[in-house]
Design a protein around this nucleic acid. Structure first.
Lengths: 263, 263
DNA sequence: GTACATTACTTTAGGGTGTAAGGAGTCGGC
DNA sequence: GCCGACTCCTTACACCCTAAAGTAATGTAC
């Protein structure tokens, strides 16, 4: 018999997300709790930040707090709920104030903050909850994005899609940067070494590369893949972030002009 | 002592990616191989498509082929390499021809094909290799995107960023749709039920919602979150895909006008 | 002051995972 | 006919999440 995640589970999750962060001191019998949901979430975030999502296990979190893995189950229903909490709490870190003069500058500033947030917590891109968490952090991010881009004067029903597109561009481009760093620390192989080994093999194993992929090859001839001081993948990620954002905002500007009517 | 992924591993991986798909019939002694890399990859993709990435294990793949998990290690170095192969082979499915009259129509058509590809293989969004796989499939996608958007007439060094932004918008928006479907089949809970339970709880646990997130609330009042025939998350994903794409292409058009010089 | 209910935390256990190590069986070439 | 190479299997280990049951600590009620 299959057990579905029922309404009780949903309630428990939402209570953890929206409930008070400092639990009211217990009155009844029983030993005093030595931990708290907030402490557990903080420890888990710390592990994910420093050692990566692969190192995050109930055991490792418990160990960091001087407990066994099972001790956490008193506070949190399971690992998925813990990850949801980590996700939502971290999104809540996004600053909410962007007092730039015009909407375009504010949007750039906000996108930069979103980028920084994801670089500080690269695992955010790996968790991707199956469905929206519907926690305060998620709402906070949506609110901030909507508020900043509402200044374009476009109707909210359109701003909504601008927000989605901006969010996707930021997340997509930061992913490359984050994963590049992560791979470097996890495998111990610097990006330069990795790249060097791979590109040499590429020439050997796929000699017909320029014929099969002429446009890519042309891009290579123009020096697009030349190394620089900055790791290649990270630089590429940052540049694609900036360029993609500019393109999108140009599109928004065009929409504003069209909406205000041709004079 | 830590063992780093050395050059040998890189060679093996690249050979699997670029080598001939039908292995030359063996000549030497020993039993004839009963499996092949291609068969293993195909079985793995089938599992990921139908049962999700969580159900993909060396055991499950072996079982589908009538072997044990360990039998696979004769053909493939490990699970990560297998996933890389799945990823690259699947990207290779993207059609390469988009004979639309103008670049904008071609770009829309290509973006749609990319969207379909990701919906057919939702796990693509979960694998996200730590570093580019540098396989033929990945090159194929890049080549196709670059070729279609080179028709804008913009310099290739700019087209590159258009490609990146388009790719990010497609992947970001399709993610929501894919995960929504996946969650429905995995949890057995339809999106409508899930949404219903959650939104009721939201009102109860967070009564100050409209005060804390006024812009989101305003969007809700405008009927943005109303249910429809189509599942909510999927519709939202599709709409954000279309709208985001249009915005981006408007930005590209503006760039073309600016580049061709104001007359 | 003692019995009881309640709670925090532990140990144990079961069913997963990826994969290292070594053994069994099968075939081509000498 | 046998050797060596090769495929495939069994076994084993370390790790994962978490259900279940046991232990210790605490507050309340009698």
């Amino acid at each position: 018999m299959v057990v579905f995640a029922g309404q009780g589970d949903a309630r428990r999750s939402m209570e953890l997300l929206w409930g008070p962060r400092v639990a009211a001191p217990r009155t009844g019998p029983g030993p005093k709790p030595g931990l708290s949901v907030e402490a557990i979430v903080a420890a888990a975030i710390e592990i994910a930040d420093t050692e990566g999502m692969a190192a995050l296990s109930m055991r490792s979190v418990g160990e960091r707090l001087g407990r066994t893995a099972m001790a956490l189950y008193t506070y949190v229903p399971g690992k998925t709920e813990l990850v949801d909490l980590m996700y939502d709490r971290t999104l809540g870190e996004l600053p909410s104030s962007y007092p730039e003069p015009d909407w375009r500058a504010a949007a750039l500033s906000l996108a930069g903050a979103l980028w920084d947030l994801h670089l500080r917590h690269p695992w955010l891109l790996q968790v991707s909850p199956a469905r929206p968490v519907l926690g305060p952090g998620e709402f906070h991010v949506q609110e901030t994005l909507l508020a900043v881009l509402a200044a374009t004067g476009l109707p909210l029903s359109r701003v909504r899609w601008v927000v989605a597109a901006l969010f996707n561009i930021v997340r997509g481009s930061v992913q490359a940067a984050a994963e590049s760093r992560q791979a470097a620390t996890e495998t111990g192989l610097s990006e330069e070494d990795w790249w060097h080994a791979r590109s040499a093999l590429l020439g050997e194993l796929a000699p017909d590369l320029t014929a099969r992929f002429p446009t890519v090859a042309r891009l290579g001839e123009e020096g697009a893949f030349e190394p620089s001081d900055e790791p290649y993948l990270e630089r590429e990620a940052r540049l694609s972030f900036e360029a993609g954002l500019e393109l999108l905002l140009d599109g928004v500007e065009a929409a504003i002009v069209k909406a205000s009517g041709p004079r």
